[in-house]
Design a protein around this nucleic acid. Structure first.
Lengths: 229, 229
DNA sequence: AAAAAAATGTAGCTGTGGCTACAAATTAAA
DNA sequence: TTTAATTTGTAGCCACAGCTACATTTTTTT
């Protein structure tokens, strides 16, 4: 377990709990670790969830799948990232999303009750945990809002532009690689792959962007930003 | 102020704080009340927000407005409802949404710091406040997810069906009134009003639903649910 | 009650983007 | 390498939804 301490240290839930004895902390919280193989499901939409998950290694995918089989990717969670933190705070704790492992993963589970309740012992970190939980929920909200923004855009070009500009901002460079392949990117933008490819080709032809495989380059940022207005 | 106590009592933030002396509570939290006229803006997307708002009377609208002027309604908040609770929990506290008053309103503002910090005095309600804040954020998350679900639907009929089924479930009846008018409903579904009206007419013709003004009636729930698959 | 304003419904035209089908290229397996 | 499988790109067709324009109804104002 010790090998995962650096990952935990980066986890937002444990922020401002520097002087920590992790052994004691984890025990007090009643945590459990489980290993998953690629493609394995952690839980499904509709399941009742009582634990928060922290990815120690590997990658998990958060997604929605409707009855028609259309899949929509909400996020990829990498080591030190969390999931299910929004679900456990609701009244019914029914997950609206499905979580699937994309690369062999180890996941740390923490019972929600242990986070919001004080443990009875004199553990000073509970207040910090609670405040961190709030920040996490706030940020989650913020990200959902960004996602909403993307989905409310009307045109294909607007969606692509918004996506690429955001990626570029996050990497702080006009040249960047994306993790997603075309199918995943289309899922993320909630459009059909073929239409997206067509529009990407047009934008390349017009000299707005350039790309090859997963590498993208924004050639005319001003013009690209114009697409959003 | 006393006249608003019943409204506060219904507010989720004050749940499980029954034995409360509101006078003391509100003072300890450093609350302020402001009155707004219809159409007046409470704050704009991009503003930095440090207060949570609770609607005491009237109605406010939460929305996004892009540069092209397309407006997208996220929610209507009625008395005892809250807003900005998601924003204040984030790191930057920059609002992604604009809040506008739709019916003359009185709004109670609470500085975020006063909620998450203990006040130094022996006020037992702080822990409850914090736990309530978490539930609120969780529910907010849940609603955003529902909204996302709606927006990821492809067809007009699917969106309408999803919306109507949800309304029906909430009212627990196949006959119900909606608060939104056609334009607002179209905004909410992120479609054009005319196309929505056309599809509504078709669905009525096919005997799926019936409606007049703001009253709706689901005639064939099975068939309607079928639209989502 | 009359007039004005706002909300709702309808029709026709058009463009975007989804879909099928296939080609080309890249990656993985034999 | 050859073969198979997966990913990516292209083309054509067509339906759906957006838009403009206007008719009709309902609500508000005078």
């Amino acid at each position: 377990m010790e090998k995962h301490y650096p990952v935990l240290r980066k986890c937002v839930l444990f922020r401002n709990i520097e002087d920590m004895n992790y052994e004691h902390l984890l025990q007090c919280l009643g945590t459990q670790v489980r290993k998953y193989k690629e493609e394995e499901y952690v839980f499904f939409a509709g399941d009742v969830i009582n634990h928060i998950g922290i990815v120690l290694s590997g990658v998990v995918e958060i997604m929605k799948e409707n009855l028609a089989g259309n899949k929509h990717i909400l996020a990829f969670i990498e080591p030190s990232g969390m999931f299910a933190e929004g679900i456990v705070c609701t009244a019914k704790r029914i997950s609206p999303v499905t979580v699937q492992v994309k690369e062999d993963a180890e996941i740390l589970f923490i019972p929600y009750e242990r986070i919001i309740m004080s443990c009875g012992n004199v553990c000073g970190f509970h207040i910090s945990l609670i405040q961190n939980m709030m920040i996490i929920l706030g940020e989650k909200n913020f990200n959902l809002n960004r996602k909403l923004e993307l989905l409310t855009l009307k045109g294909m070009r607007e969606k692509i532009a918004s996506f690429l500009i955001n990626e570029s901002l996050e990497r702080k460079s006009n040249t960047f690689h994306i993790i997603l392949n075309r199918t995943q990117m289309a899922d993320y933008l909630n459009v059909s792959r073929t239409s997206m490819c067509r529009e990407l080709a047009r934008m390349k032809e017009e000299g707005l962007i350039d790309y090859y495989g997963h590498s993208f380059k924004i050639l005319d940022m001003d013009e690209l930003a114009q697409c959003l207005e």
